[in-house]
């Protein structure tokens, strides 16, 4: 009984392998490409692989500017709220990182940026018991953004230029827990351009600017050092 079970199990394990082998053989017979030929006109494609893909890491400082309106923030854990009586500009400085992959100049990029707020509308603490102290207004905070962009990059000599559209999410937080706190999560839809110069085939310096497509006054500027896995990102 035990031997019969082992036979059944062995047959079950081997059957898919045999089927796969038959399938591969049929594919090979039908397409004449069972082996990996690089001869042009057989299975090989002329000039395939003559340009490497794009794979680049970037890191550098960013300047971020946006706006925030009058609002009341709330923090359940701290059981306090903060209030912005008058909206206004929010500016901050921070650091951004970016990872880009692409081919033939078209790319997909992922950005992350974290900034400390330099200037923002004041947030007044308002405890739920309405015992807040308006004199302790705060204008410090953080900005965080994470986005993905899709775009096109070209090379002119040692220079490169790119443009893209991006979507993502971000949050602006103003105030200090637990006294006062406002968090404004937001959707990002922006247009971004960048320009750079190749210092070596693997290292570049870039400058970038982006602007929101639906929120007036929201812009990001930055410079970055780029490290390319493949030389010159395969750009012309």
């Amino acid at each position: 009984m035990r031997s019969a079970s082992l036979l059944v199990v062995a047959a079950a394990l081997l059957a898919p392998g045999r089927a796969a082998a038959d399938w591969n053989l049929r594919i090979g017979q039908e397409t004449d490409c069972q082996e990996s030929s690089i001869v042009v006109g057989r299975c090989g494609q002329f000039a395939a692989g003559w340009r490497p893909p794009m794979m680049r890491f970037e890191i550098g400082p960013v300047l971020h500017r946006t706006t925030i309106g009058p609002m009341v923030g709330e923090d359940e854990e701290a059981n306090v709220t903060g209030r912005i009586l008058r909206g206004g500009d929010v500016t901050g400085r921070g650091i951004g990182g970016r990872f880009t992959v692409g081919y033939l100049g078209y790319y997909l990029a992922t950005d992350v940026a974290v900034s400390g707020i330099d200037e923002a509308p004041a947030v007044s603490p308002v405890a739920r018991s309405e015992r807040g102290d308006a004199s302790a207004a705060s204008t410090t905070g953080m900005m965080f953004a994470m986005r993905m962009g899709i775009g096109k990059e070209v090379r002119l000599g040692r220079l490169m230029f790119g443009s893209e559209l991006g979507v993502g999410i971000g949050v602006v937080t103003i105030g200090d827990l637990p006294a006062q706190y406002v968090a404004d999560p937001r959707f990002i839809l922006d247009a971004r351009v960048h320009a750079g110069v190749w210092l070596t085939p693997h290292i570049s310096v870039l400058g970038h600017a982006s602007t929101s497509l639906f929120r007036d006054g929201e812009r990001t500027f930055g410079i970055a050092l780029g490290f390319s896995v493949f030389p010159s990102d395969g750009l012309r």
């Binding site: 030929s37 690089i38 001869v39 042009v40 006109g41 057989r42 090989g44 494609q45 002329f46 000039a47 692989g49 003559w50 340009r51 490497p52 085939p201 493949f230 030389p231 010159s232 395969g234 750009l235 012309r236």
Partner: peptide, 25 residues
């Protein structure tokens, strides 16, 4: 003459500090 049933062989670019291979019958 090169065997080029798909009409592929022609002028192409090789990326900077990169290399390309081709085998032509």
């Amino acid at each position: 003459i090169p065997r080029d049933p798909r009409g592929e062989i022609g002028r192409r670019e090789i990326a900077a500090t990169w290399a390309g291979r081709a085998a032509i019958e």
